[in-house]
Design a protein around this nucleic acid. Structure first.
Length: 902
RNA sequence: GCCGGAGUGGCGAAAUGGCAGACGCGUCGGAUUCAAAAUCCGAUAAGGGUAAAACCUUGUGUGGGUUCGAGUCCCACCUCCGGUACCA
């Protein structure tokens, strides 16, 4: 084998690792430091691996191989996020069961990953579609179902941190006396309904996004520009009973506990923005019944002493505002079209117009709402409400620019100081009253006739509050409103509860039954499957065509799956929704620690040993949703005592996307089938080998950066591997044997210095995930050593070790050629000797007034004065100093000398 | 609109405030070869200068600033990429 024959080398070593189970990982090894390095597991699509996948996977593999050599116990698993629509759509077309398709796709992915030589412990492989896995996904759902959030509960977790707010067992939910006393039975129907309202997993009937083409509802975040994220199909809004997860209960903790994580500030910010916490006030506006006049006492004493009611009274509109300081500028109010008070407040004359508007709004998809964003629409209800701060009678409108799902679904409109209200007021001729003036010296200008003034400033036209600065006014009026019982401070989140059900076959079934009455109608009461009976398997089905209605696919299952009678004689119908694809990926990192446990979702000792994940690498497309959902589940499990860390992923890195090859204009675009610029890893491995692919993906540029693919770059690293090969191996011999000048000779001082510099550079670069520069340093080493007449084996051996995390196949082959008999996967990582790095002389740049004028070679370690003396003898320096006065000399010994002259 | 990130040779890119362009690609020249492939050696920011060197000037999106010294720090702006979008 004279030439570098990657084909035979790679397949041989892959076989070796597999046969020797080289990368099997033991749990709870006490004498080694643990390191949990995780890739975002892929969805095994039908099109196979993409060159984007191995980018992150190679990065983690380098860290893992390096860390093993550093003596750590490394967990590096891989699995499959295997539920999802494509396999089901394939089933609709061909009748092939989604499980078959999924298994085939997994087989392809696994073959492709193995071909790249990643050091996964395949014993820990899992797929979210394995009944053994989703058994525990269902179990976690039952924990969510069994948990309510006690926002005021103060406690100290196993991490020793004091927190306020905890997810607690539903059995610990305090039951209001009037419910509990009913029949004296703790499990009375009223109590059960009360509990159901407080669970973290609950059923809600709300307008949802129904996508007829996909045959499922979608979460808001799965819709882009009013179309489904997957496939770009239209989406309509309709009310449906759906499972929701109360992620909003954890909003504050999800935002605050980001702080302790080693994630990029950009990603943390994205999550914070997604959560979108805002602080303001809720204020009650009493509805003006119509006959009553504004003078009716209200104007003189608008604020009365009473506590602010938990729920707004029947005759009040509760609004949320972040600018309570603008209450005196309210000239109208708006209810969301879906707001429950609309019927009540609408006058007979306006009823027809209001109903028409509500109907139109309810049919509007998100796309329509977005498209019409510029033109405000709305209808006057004919009703009025009383402004609590000044007793004014304010007209109440409905308009779809107010969302039922945010805040209280109602706003006070202050057109002078809010852009949306301003536009609306201009459209409908509603008065605009300025109540904030620019603060003196702020440089702001208020031009209320032409544009809303949204900055802070000082109050005007606000009665006794005139002259108060915005911030102070806010807290003062919030306090005053609160004392008067008409308002309170309130916090709102952009984050909504998580719509957790889908109508598809190929997702986890819910472990839930609905009670039926004698007529077979659901009573609204639910029962859970017993934990021991899990998993709830999918029913047998041959026809995967969507029902065409929002009725879930599973409703077509045979009656034996769908119905049963419980031991107490109550008839039950199974929940027929299924869980979204996010469910399985929410906790897979836990199962990798203990994937075969049939008694528990994870063994507590293994959880304690492995968690948290020390390094998590994946695409930025999951920056918000997957990571937020996952953190939410983890926190619930933490509160319920099943995990001991508050966060799952300590360090997160997002790899940058790999774009297609640039076109003739130098423009690079996203790889996609439609553009025809997809690079298939199979082709690269066939033509250049896995080591070359791995090396190229790391050499392209910084891991986190977006970078274009360039085939000539693959050639480059392939040539490098050839040079490494010939540096060690005699490529003209018949068999693999060392080149004749590779000997047992003692290394020269220079050779040692180059080696130790390389060790230091590569080590430091791996530590900061700067793989591209690490490879550069190895190239420099190779360029140097290839030209050495005598190449000591000891130096080459150390170098091969440095190379091994990056290009493990060729490294193992060379390691063996250098006389070693077993895998180098656990050989100690080379150490550098700082003393070896020091050279006798150094070249120091000399500047005059900051401009480079000369470079002088001086003995290493000389002091500043000596350096200056030597520099002054340099001819070209002298030339530039001539006739000038030296004002100052900056000397950085060993680095630089700068004469400042006049 | 708002929030992030990035702009450096022909291209991918390097550079704890201290020699801009390491390393790789490409290109040009040379060696090897009957020839080619493969391989090896050398040159390669731009402009000026020289027989050749030396040397000089200008250069990290644009304009300012801080500093002995700025690709790097600060301010303003331009362009591209990503996220988000009636969230009161």
């Amino acid at each position: 084998m004279p030439r570098y024959d990657y084909k035979s080398i790679e397949s041989r070593w892959q076989q070796y690792w597999e046969q020797n189970d080289t990368f099997r990982t033991e749990d709870c090894v006490s004498d080694k430091k643990k390191l949990y390095v995780l890739d975002m597991f892929p969805y095994p699509s039908g099109s196979g691996l993409h060159v984007g996948h191995p980018e992150g996977y190679t990065a983690t593999d380098i860290v893992c191989r390096y860390s093993r050599m550093k003596g750590m116990n490394v967990l590096h698993p891989m699995g499959w996020d295997a539920f999802g629509l494509p396999a089901e759509e394939h089933a609709v077309k061909t009748g092939t069961h989604p499980r078959i398709t999924t298994e085939q796709n997994i087989a392809t992915f696994k073959r492709q990953l193995k071909m790249l030589g990643f050091s996964y412990d395949w014993n820990r492989e899992l797929a979210t579609t394995d009944p053994d896995y989703y058994r525990w996904t269902q179990w976690i759902f039952l924990q969510l179902f069994d948990t309510w959030y006690d926002a005021d509960f103060e406690w100290t977790g196993p991490d020793g941190v004091k927190r306020k707010g905890k997810g607690r067992p539903i059995s610990e939910l305090p039951i209001p006396a009037e419910l509990a006393s009913e029949n004296g039975k703790p499990a009375s129907e009223a109590v059960r309904r009360y509990q159901d309202k407080h669970r973290l997993a609950y059923v809600s009937e709300a307008p949802v996004n129904w996508c007829p083409a996909l045959g499922t509802v979608l979460a808001n975040e799965e819709i882009i520009d009013g179309k489904s994220e997957r496939g770009g199909h239209p989406v309509v809004r309709m009310p449906l009973k759906q499972w929701m997860l109360r992620i909003t209960a954890y909003a504050d903790r999800l935002a605050n506990e980001l702080e302790s994580l080693t994630w990029s500030e950009a990603i943390k910010l994205m999550q914070r923005n997604w959560i979108g916490r805002s602080v303001g006030a809720e204020v009650d506006f009493r509805i003006e019944s119509g006959e009553r006049k504004a003078e009716n006492g209200a104007a003189t004493s608008p604020l009365s002493e009473k506590p602010f009611p938990r729920e707004p009274a029947a005759d009040t509109i509760r609004i949320y505002t972040t600018r309570p300081d603008t209450l005196f500028g309210v000239t109208y109010m708006v209810l969301a079209p879906e707001h429950p008070l609309v019927d009540r407040i609408t006058t007979p004359e306006q009823r027809a117009a209001v109903n028409e508007y509500r109907t139109k709004a309810s049919l509007k998809s998100d796309l329509d709402r977005t498209d019409l964003a510029k033109d405000k629409t709305g209808v006057f209800t004919g009703g009025y409400a009383i402004n609590p701060v000044n007793g004014e009678k304010v007209p109440v409108w409905i308009a779809d620019y107010v969302l039922i799902s945010y805040g209280t679904g109602a706003i006070m409109a202050v057109p002078a100081h809010d852009e949306r209200d301003y536009e609306f007021a201009k459209t409908f001729g509603i008065p605009i009253r300025q109540v904030v003036a620019p603060a003196p010296g702020s440089g702001h200008v208020a031009d209320i006739d032409n544009v809303a003034f949204v900055e802070t400033g000082v109050a005007v036209n606000s009665g006794k509050y005139d002259g108060t600065a915005t911030a102070e006014f806010k807290s003062q009026i919030t306090k005053d409103l609160s004392e008067a019982g008409v308002g309170r401070e309130a916090v709102n989140y952009r984050l909504r509860d998580w719509l957790f059900s889908r109508q598809r076959y190929w997702g986890e079934p819910f472990p839930i039954w609905h009670e039926l009455d004698a007529e077979g109608n659901p009573t609204g009461l639910m029962r859970t499957d017993a934990v021991e009976s899990l998993p709830v398997l999918h029913p047998h089905m041959e026809d995967f065509k969507p029902t065409g209605t929002p009725e879930p696919m599973l409703a077509k299952a045979e009656p034996t799956w769908l119905y049963k009678t419980d031991t107490d004689g109550v008839k039950l119908k199974r929940e027929t929704n299924s869980m979204p694809q996010w469910a399985g990926s929410c906790w897979y990192y836990l199962r990798f620690c203990d994937n075969k446990n049939s008694n528990n979702f994870i063994d507590p000792a293994k959880e304690k040993y492995w968690l948290p994940v020390d390094l998590y690498i994946g695409g930025a497309e999951h920056a918000v949703l997957h990571l937020l959902y996952s953190r939410f589940w983890h926190k619930v499990l933490f509160d319920r005592g099943y995990v001991t860390t508050p966060e799952p992923f300590q360090k997160l890195v997002n790899q940058g996307m790999i774009l297609g090859e640039p076109d003739e204009n130098g423009k690079a675009e996203k790889m996609s089938k439609s553009r025809g610029n997809v690079i298939n890893p199979d082709d690269i491995v066939r033509d250049y080998g896995a080591d070359a692919l791995r090396l190229y993906e790391m050499f392209m540029g910084p891991l986190e950066q977006v970078k274009p693919w360039q085939m000539s770059g693959v050639e480059g690293v392939y040539r490098f591997l050839g040079r490494v090969w010939r540096m060690v191996i005699d490529d003209r011999a018949e068999a693999v044997q060392l080149a004749s000048n590779v000997t047992d000779a003692e290394p020269t001082e220079e050779q040692l210095r180059v080696l130790h510099k390389t060790i230091k550079a590569v080590t430091d670069d791996i530590d900061r995930l700067a793989f591209n520069t690490a490879i550069s340093r190895m190239m420099e080493f190779t360029n140097f050593m290839s030209n050495q007449e005598v190449r000591p084996k000891s130096v080459l051996s150390s170098f091969v070790q440095l190379l091994s995390p990056f290009a493990p196949h060729i490294a193992e082959e060379l390691w063996a050629a250098l006389g070693q008999t077993k895998t180098m996967a656990y050989e100690p990582w080379p150490q550098y000797d700082p003393a070896m790095l020091v050279e006798d002389t150094v070249e120091v740049p000399v500047q005059v007034n900051g401009k480079l004028r000369s470079k002088i070679v001086v003995p290493n370690g000389i002091d500043a004065a000596e350096l200056q003396r030597l520099a002054e003898t340099d001819e070209s320096v002298r030339k530039h100093l001539e006739g000038k006065t030296v004002v100052k000399v900056i000397a950085v010994p060993g680095r630089l000398l700068n004469f400042v002259v006049k």
